[in-house]
């Protein structure tokens, strides 16, 4: 296969266009042929404007700042471990002690209200880091198993049109078992298959007789924090619904503040509600990670599930 070359005349006009910032008004006067070249080149570049682009998430700035703060905390922790004993203690006078005590008091007063916030940010960042490790384990498993992911035995054979609530209840726990397979087979540690080493994660339910694969649908969610809707009994659902008008939307793993999601391209994202915009061959649609798609086209627990919709992203614990 040969690499195509740009004709020197096209290259010359392209250079002019780049230096003009693709603004025809800034271009020097061109003869008719070069003007046609410039138009042709611009047509190609303008076609790039048609590539689909999603807006950045609303929490991107906060998430970035949280990551920076986490890095600072980690760095401070390392510095603390590296200093102290080896350097020895300096002799301080009474004035220094008083100044230090005053500083500590002020710092404590300021820090206490911020502590809870930073603790949450830290837990979320650690969880995201764990998910990234889990993503690497899933990719390793996939590479050794012809592109497929650990099966969640017992619910790949759901018949289409089953009751979604029963399907969810029956699948509950199977997601965790499938992820534990990764640890059993040595792709990661057991702690890696849980949020911050202890709390359950939710894993994607493969649809009816469809083997779950990392390669078929790029950019799809695969794992997330624990699904809080599964396991609620009907009374809890009713009472939750009556009190708030909504069932829990954030994961219990993070006190319902939101959830971390791992996508099959290895990226993670923190979201407030379990709604993720995904691209399928049928178009772009919003997926509710907590609920399966049902026969009436909505997503909910307790209705008829469409167990063979390969583009439904439904995560169970």
């Amino acid at each position: 296969m040969t690499v195509p070359n740009l004709h020197p005349s096209d290259a010359r006009v392209l250079d002019l266009l780049v230096e003009a910032g693709f603004d025809p008004a800034v271009l020097p006067p061109l003869n008719a042929e070069d003007a046609a070249r410039a138009r042709a080149l611009c047509d190609y570049f303008h076609s790039l404007d048609r590539t689909p682009i999603a807006e950045p998430s609303d929490v991107l700035v906060e998430a970035t700042l949280a990551r920076i703060q986490q890095a600072d905390r980690d760095s401070a922790e390392r510095m603390k471990l590296g200093s102290g004993e080896s350097r020895g203690l300096r002799v301080m006078g009474i004035g220094n002690h008083l100044a230090l005590a005053a500083t500590v008091l002020i710092a404590v007063c300021v820090a206490i209200p911020l502590a809870a916030h930073s603790r949450n940010g830290s837990a979320e960042a650690l969880c995201a880091n764990g998910l990234r490790n889990l993503g690497r384990a899933l990719h390793g498993y996939s590479a050794d198993n012809l592109g497929s992911l650990p099966m969640t035995a017992g619910f790949a054979g759901f018949a289409p049109g089953g009751n979604a609530d029963q399907m969810a209840q029956a699948a509950d726990g199977k997601g965790g078992e499938a992820l534990a397979t990764l640890a059993h087979k040595g792709y990661c540690t057991a702690a890696c298959t849980r949020c911050n080493g202890t709390r359950q994660l939710a894993y994607r339910v493969p649809m009816h007789r469809v083997q779950l694969s990392l390669l078929i649908l790029p950019g799809m969610p695969v794992v997330a924090d624990r699904n809080p809707e599964i396991g609620l009994n009907p009374e809890q659902k009713l009472s939750s619904s009556a009190k708030t008008g909504e069932l829990p939307r954030g994961s219990d793993n993070h006190e319902r503040r939101g959830l971390n999601v791992l996508f099959n391209d290895g990226a993670t994202r923190w979201i407030i509600e379990p709604i993720v915009r995904v691209r399928t061959p049928l178009g772009i649609r919003d997926e509710d990670l907590w609920r399966p798609r049902t026969t009436d086209g909505t997503e909910s627990l307790g209705s008829k599930a469409v167990a063979n919709d390969p583009f439904d992203v439904f995560l169970v614990n």
Binding site: P56, L60, T64, R67, P218, F263, D265, G266, A267
Partner: peptide, 12 residues
């Protein structure tokens, strides 16, 4: 990168 989620990660 061809993916919004990957872009989120690399942006951070």
């Amino acid at each position: 990168l061809g993916s919004a989620t990957a872009a989120d990660d690399v942006f951070q």
